[in-house]
């Protein structure tokens, strides 16, 4: 096959990753590692909170990874990656100076505009905190534009807690409320135990002036969280959920992330509860 460049009018580079450099990496937990990635010349990724990139580890393939730093961060962006399969295991072996491929950003992202002037309730389950960190940090950097910030974060066990120092820093601000729970409390854990929905009775919100953004792990949790929020009186178009699918292309072609006529990679990954309710097989 020829390797010719394509003629005018068509973007030949749709599937071509840009070579990016890892400039920082640190382990967050026994299975999660955060990478600071820099595009050539420190060019901005230009993403919105909640968008994802397709990350290549050449020879291993490509996987969708949410950006976990806010757009305001200049020069580089962060990716938090859980060690799950071959690609992510290989990635965990990489550190500063190593090269990866990046395509994107893709997807719609969280509704930051709708959140302006409103109270923000953020519900995170497990690794779901990573993309929501881009939302929280963005709110922090523009703090006066938003109302209260309430973070409900549930994870499996104390050793799985992501960004512990940042959780501390977020809760230090009196306009914020940060509640953390673990499914399985281990020795020495003095905090709350139970799934994330058990935190709901512990917060009071004004349902009319609250926007909820959530990424909560297994599909069944989405249904529970949605039900809890509805019971609290949050309108369904004030709730936004980021769906997880295994996109191959990220641009609405490969078919892997189709959900009832929508492509999670281009129409999502963030959908309102109103949309999700009409989408079969979504959660």
């Amino acid at each position: 096959m020829k390797g010719d460049r394509i003629g005018s009018g068509v973007e030949a580079g749709l599937y071509v990753p840009e070579i990016a450099t890892i400039v920082g990496a640190r382990d967050l937990t026994w299975q999660d590692r955060v990478f600071v990635v820099e595009l050539a010349g420190g060019r901005s990724l230009g993403h919105r909170p909640g968008q994802f990139v397709q990350l290549s580890v050449f020879g291993f393939g490509e996987a969708p990874i949410s950006v976990c730093s806010p757009p305001e961060k200049a020069g580089s962006f962060d990716l938090c990656v859980r060690k799950l399969g071959g690609l992510t295991k290989a990635l965990h072996g990489l550190g500063p100076g190593d090269e990866v491929g990046i395509r994107g950003p893709f997807g719609n992202g969280f509704p930051m505009k709708a959140m302006r002037g409103m109270d923000c309730l953020i519900v995170a389950g497990g690794i779901g905190l990573a993309p929501l960190r881009s939302v929280i940090d963005s709110i922090f950097l523009n703090r006066s534009e938003y109302g209260r910030l309430i973070l409900l974060y549930g994870t499996r066990s104390p050793r799985d807690i992501l960004f512990p120092e940042e959780l501390e820093a977020w809760s230090a601000d009196p306009r914020n409320e940060v509640l953390v729970t673990v499914d399985e409390a281990s020795e020495g854990w003095g905090g709350h135990a139970g799934v994330v929905t058990t935190l709901f009775p512990r917060v009071t919100i004004d349902p009319v002036r609250t926007v909820v953004v959530a990424l909560v792990g297994p599909p069944v949790m989405y249904r529970f969280v949605m039900a809890e929020l509805e019971a609290m009186g949050v309108p369904e178009d004030h709730m936004f959920f980021s769906l997880e699918r295994r996109m191959r292309c990220g641009v609405g072609k490969c078919g892997h992330c189709q959900v009832d006529g929508r492509c999670v990679c281009v129409d999502g990954p963030v959908f309102s509860a109103r949309e999700i309710k009409t989408m079969k097989e979504s959660v």
Binding site: M1, K2, D4, I6, A12, V16, I19, S56, F58, V100
Partner: peptide, 8 residues
């Protein structure tokens, strides 16, 4: 590392 499109 490098990557280029293969398009015919």
């Amino acid at each position: 590392a490098g990557a280029e499109a293969v398009v015919s």
